[in-house]
Amino acid sequence: MKLGVLFSGGKDSVFACHLAMKSEEVVCLISILSKNDHSYMFHTPNVSLSALQAEAAGIPQIRIESQGEEEKELDDLKAGIAAAIERYDIEGIVTGAVMSVYQASRIQRICRELNIWCFSPLWYTNQEEYMQKIISSGFKVIIAGVFSYPFEKEWLGREIDSQLVNELKLLSEKYSITLSGEGGEYESFVLDAPFFSKRIVIDESESFCKNYNGRYIIKEAHLEEK
């Protein structure tokens, strides 16, 4: 089945893409570039760099700009998926939704309207096993944004490795945060994945954080052979 992946560049959409490629044909990536940093629908940190990820993966990308106004951004998403159907003949889309019924149900409705399949292979996955799989499958993922207590500036730009997952586990036992950041506690950015033929190298970055709300902005990056 030819599929398009809703692709933000964060770990969930990239891992969902990885799973989809194991059994189906991923023919395009669909990225919504939201101007609203607080969108409930779309992951925003460094999404403009998803073009570099698409190049690293060798998969064509459809990029749709959105003002990010609630509900109107769904029209932008629908336009992006409709363009993928038109250009790449996709029969379904893949999402990285983990627990958000807000995201999942809105995407399901759009797929129904466009008469295509919808797949969310990370839906209600065991979060600890998922985080371990990201590491063991050879992904290189960094923390690109923090949006809740007790995350401070030193978390920004850190790689998701076993030590970081252990720290997250301790925090999740103490505070009401999810291990995978599904509640919007943190956002991530993927520098390398098993299906990338090149990896992303960051040349220049900037971090800022205030009141447990911070971002890791990649100002310059390039691709390197693996």
Partner: peptide, 15 residues
Amino acid sequence: EDSLSHPEFVDPIVN
């Protein structure tokens, strides 16, 4: 069998 829908509809029940 082993479809891309399996992790979404079967695995959460298995868990």
